[in-house]
Amino acid sequence: MEIDPLIFRLSIFILSIFVGYYVVWSVTPSLHTPLMSVTNAISSVIIVGAIIAGLSGKVDSVFNISSIFGFLAIALAAINIFGGFLVTQRMLAMYKKKKKDKK
């Protein structure tokens, strides 16, 4: 009997929760704010669904009600992706170690 592919996806999901659990516990508390902004950015990988939706229109009529929602989702996710990664980078650039020569 064949296994439903859903079971495979469920396995990936469950194992990723465990990976997430251990990886996140190892994040240093001082970087919890960047953690939130970067998780924000990566969860916007939902843009792949939005792109498929946006491209679902026909060649002569790009816009239909479904693709319009797709395009809106693309814009929202793009705000998050660019905003999330850039603001994380901006924050991380500020974390500096003590300079030896500085008194």
Partner: peptide, 9 residues
């Protein structure tokens, strides 16, 4: 749309 959203972000 990616460009518009991206620039806002």
């Amino acid at each position: 749309f990616i460009l518009v959203g991206g620039s806002i972000g």
